[in-house]
Nucleic acid binder design. Structure first.
Length: 615
DNA sequence: GTAGGGTTAG
């Protein structure tokens, strides 16, 4: 456009007496400027907009001579420049623009504008107002449909679930066609926010209203139920949906396989697998990933490996998830050589290892105490473009703590914070227990207090670590107090939590209380393990009640729990103290046969037992 | 648009 022409418009826009211009005229002028020269003139001469009011804004935005893109620029400008332009776009302006964008099929932008509508404090109106304002002005059912769909998405994204449901209700009431895809977003958001009751309720409403359900919605709801532990309800829902003609697919089945694996229900798991076979649903990568974990977590690495090979034979190419899973389980079960071989194989097959794959391997070498190799892997990972994240940092810190190098872990924590990565519950628990192991109890406590100060919620692991610290200090009163606090907060104690307390009481010789705790945990369905028995045996044995300790020792074996070096040591030292040297030596032979390495304490006990008998 | 992979306590 020529400068002259533009000046002409500007003259009109800025008359000697602006008040003499009508809204209509001002809007026309702004529109002309926008259409011909864009935003620039308005930006450089904000006085052009000095008479702006909501009506003018609406007129400009709805002017069909102004292309939607220019409308958007204008709108963004008004939103941004609220310092010198008092006219911020109101609800109407948002709606008008939304409509223009719809016409131009600019859906992403449309969604962004609607996001302002539902999140801006100045714009928050009840759903009914928003929708009816739109409907009053634009009576295009297709547009209304699209808009409702987007509103449901935007409300769901912002966790404004009540509002999202209101949009649904509005659509139902006005007999607008409701697509499953719109509802799906809300179902997922509810599931992900742990609102399964609402999720299920909404799914029921969808069915009631005749929304055409597909396997997608069905599977999401089922997954939510399974994750909440309601596998049976999930199965029932599947049955109901089959009756309605919706068939579960491999993902639905995987959801159940995963749920049964998680609750260690092999009968349920096998039942699902045979249903899959009956339905001729073939396993995919996810199925194998879950099954590898299933076998791995029960120590059956050979079975896991067999499955992994089976999938190749069946012509299913393992993806990076499957590789990471099998690498991880080889690491956890101690076969680092195999883990590294698989890691090489992964790359050789043209797959790209990611942070998870490196994470599995790094954890493996960390647990084996090979921190030098861990550092090398980290370097390699970084050179491939994957930066360290929270999990990798935590893994490394755990590795260093395991080797007693807490100060190195603390250095990493500092580095982590400097990199802008958040230290989480894992970080604090790892370092606190590392400090605890070195008897740096004050520091460990301080760290956990700091964690709470930083508004990180302690979990069962954190509480257990705290209990352990107090027990090691001999402060059973505080230990018990933390235990009670944990229960009050709704965090369930587990075997390890009880063990920490029982060990605390046992070491103080308070065996009555220690035994009471063992009974309590059993009553609650929390199974005592080797550690529980070892603590009790130690306490009982050193307090001179060796026969009682021997009874516990037998109890333990009859429960299938293998005594450790520590258990034998406790037993042997108890027997030795009583001068029962024959029995002590018998246990010594037994532990040697079991390939358990006796430490110095065992020998000194045995020696002293001989000494005692001679006296 | 639904499922699956790496980190914590003795």
């Amino acid at each position: 456009m020529s400068t002259q022409k533009l000046l002409k418009i500007l003259e009109k826009t800025l008359p000697s007496n602006p008040a003499s211009l009508s809204n209509q005229e001002i809007a026309e002028n702004i529109a002309k400027i926008l259409a011909s020269a864009g935003l620039k003139p308005l930006q450089t001469m904000p006085s052009l907009l000095s008479h702006l009011n909501p009506h003018i804004t609406h007129l400009v935005l709805s002017n069909s001579h102004v292309p939607p893109c220019s409308c958007l620029c204008f709108f963004n400008f008004l939103r941004r420049n609220d310092s010198f332009i008092s006219e911020k776009p109101n609800l109407q302006a948002h709606v008008t623009l939304t409509c223009r964008l719809y016409g131009a099929r600019k859906f992403a932008e449309m969604k962004r504008i609607l996001n302002f509508v539902v999140t801006d404090d100045d714009l928050r109106y009840p759903v009914s107002i928003v929708v009816s304002l739109i409907e009053d002005r634009y009576n295009d059912p297709q547009f209304i449909g699209k808009l409702c769909d987007m509103l449901m998405r935007v409300y769901s994204d912002n966790k404004m679930f009540q509002e999202a449901v209101e949009v649904f209700d509005y659509m139902a009431m006005n007999r607008l066609e409701i697509e499953e895809r719109s509802c799906f977003v809300l179902l997922l958001a509810l599931k992900r926010s742990d609102r399964m009751e609402q999720c299920l309720g909404f799914f029921r409403r969808m069915l009631e209203m005749g929304v055409e359900i597909t396997v997608y919605s069905m599977t999401s709801v089922i997954d939510g139920l399974c994750k909440r532990g309601d596998v049976e309800m999930g199965r029932a829902l599947t049955g109901e949906m089959i009756n309605r003609g919706i068939k579960p697919n491999v993902i639905t089945y995987n959801t159940f396989v995963n749920a049964y694996a998680e609750r260690q229900d092999s009968a349920g798991l096998n039942e699902i697998l045979s249903l899959m076979e009956k339905d001729q649903v073939t396993y995919n990568n996810a199925t194998y990933t879950i099954l590898i974990k299933w076998y791995g977590s029960s120590g059956k690495i050979d079975e896991a490996q067999k499955l992994f090979e089976e999938m190749h034979k069946k012509g299913i190419e393992a993806d990076v998830h499957v590789y990471t899973s099998i690498i991880s389980w080889n690491c956890r079960l101690g076969d680092m050589k195999k883990a590294f071989a698989l890691f090489d194989e992964l790359s050789a097959r043209g797959l790209v290892p990611n942070v998870h794959s490196y994470g599995a391997l790094i954890d493996g070498v960390c647990k084996a105490g090979q921190m030098e190799i861990a550092e090398m892997l980290v370097n390699e990972m970084q050179s491939k473009g994957h930066d360290l994240n929270q999990v990798i940092f935590n893994t490394l810190m755990h590795g260093y703590c395991k080797r007693g190098m807490v100060d190195e872990a603390l250095r990493l924590q500092g580095l982590m914070e400097k990199k802008g990565l958040e230290t989480d519950v894992y970080t604090y628990s790892i370092i606190a227990s590392g400090l605890c192991k070195l008897n740096r109890l004050e520091e460990a406590k301080k760290l956990l207090f700091l964690m709470v100060e930083r508004d990180l919620a302690p979990n069962t692991v954190t509480f257990t670590t705290m209990i352990d610290i107090y027990c090691k200090e001999g402060n059973l009163v505080e230990a018990k107090r933390v235990f009670d606090e944990m229960e009050k907060k709704g965090d369930k104690p587990n075997t390890i939590t009880y063990n920490a307390l029982i060990d605390g009481y046992s070491k103080k010789g308070k065996m009555k209380e220690a035994h009471r705790l063992k009974e309590e945990m059993e009553d609650r369905g929390i199974t005592p393990d080797t550690y529980t028995f070892t603590s009790l045996i130690h306490g009982t044995s050193v307090s001179g009640k060796v026969d009682e300790a021997l009874k516990l020792f037998d109890d333990m074996s009859s429960k299938g729990l293998a005594p450790t070096v520590v258990t034998y040591t406790a037993m042997i030292s108890g027997l030795s103290k009583e001068g029962r040297s024959d029995e002590a030596f018998r246990l010594y032979d037994e532990m040697i046969k079991l390939d358990l390495m006796p430490d110095d304490r065992v020998y000194s006990s045995l020696v002293s037992s001989l000494h005692d008998t001679r006296v």
